[in-house]
């Protein structure tokens, strides 16, 4: 029993020596804005919102604006009133059915009186108009692939270009005998991209394994998210360039069999 046990241990150890184990890192920047809607989604949401407006009860303005106040006067002045029913008049679009200043056959447009607009007002002023930031950034316009601010609506993945000119996920060889996959990937990332990076490794379990063509070289992928800081490629012998890419761009950059391995791990949003 003991002898056979020793033999298996020895055989496993020799097997381990023949293969080079790497830990790969799928480092993602999660989307900052909500996903872009498809044309169909846009149309469907518009249809639903119009239906809802058509079926909406008349807006009870008297509840929000007290009678005889300036606010009420401003509100009433801003409204567009429907055509009222007069005796002896022919209406091509049907006889008006008006109740509480609302045409009951169609949706009601509640128009809010416009405040005076001045976009250049200082940020300290709390009553300034709300102007949303654009969903596309400068990095999108210049096509800067190394920026973390590009494609805000998509998940970005860190790809590195090695000296042979091929793109791949950051890959680090396990050198020490007691090295762990996820720790090796984390320290590797920091030696490669500087210490000014904050990441969260989701799990220490590898999510995929990729064997190189000859099978002597195996990469186990660990998933991680970047939370802050940035990847700043340091001087090194393995990689020459880096890029933050969406799934579609990753597909164009890496080999097909490599992509097929990680296809299900990358988010399409």
């Amino acid at each position: 029993m003991i002898r056979s046990g020793i033999r298996t241990m020895a055989s496993v150890a020799s097997k381990e020596n023949t293969k080079v184990i790497n830990s790969g890192l799928i480092l993602s920047r999660i989307p900052i804005v909500t996903p872009d809607l498809t044309e169909f989604e846009k149309k469907y949401y518009n249809y639903q919102s119009e239906l809802e407006k058509r079926l909406m009860w008349t807006f009870p303005y008297y509840f929000y604006f007290r009678k005889g106040t300036l606010a009420e006067r401003r509100f009433l002045k801003a409204q567009k009133y429907p055509v009222s029913k007069q005796p002896g008049v022919w209406y091509p679009k049907g006889i008006p059915d008006i109740r509480q200043n609302r045409e009951r056959r169609s949706k009601q447009d509640v128009i809010l009186p416009k405040e005076q607009e001045d976009i250049n007002e200082s940020l300290e002023k709390i009553s300034r108009p709300v102007v949303p930031n654009p969903r596309t950034t400068k990095a999108d316009e210049t096509g800067d692939l190394t920026s973390l601010e590009r494609k805000l609506s998509r998940t970005l993945y860190l790809l590195l270009k090695n000296k042979t000119g091929e793109w791949e996920f950051p890959t680090f060889q396990l050198k020490e005998d007691d090295a762990l996959l996820h720790l090796n990937a984390e320290t590797g990332l920091r030696t490669l991209g500087g210490k000014n990076i904050n990441t969260w490794t989701v799990s220490k379990t590898p999510v995929a394994a990729y064997e190189n063509n000859n099978g002597s070289d195996i990469t186990f992928f660990i998933k991680s998210h970047i939370l802050g800081g940035k990847f700043d490629l340091q001087e090194n012998d393995t990689y020459s360039n880096f890029a933050w890419l969406t799934k579609d761009e990753v597909k164009n950059h890496i080999k097909t069999d490599y992509f097929n391995k990680v296809d299900c791990l990358l988010s399409k949003v």
């Binding site: 900052i32 804005v33 800081g229």
Partner: peptide, 15 residues
């Protein structure tokens, strides 16, 4: 959490 429009400071580069 993703929002409809990005924040004024899109990404914090200094941790």
């Amino acid at each position: 959490t993703p929002t409809e429009y990005p924040p004024t400071i899109v990404w914090r580069y200094q941790i």
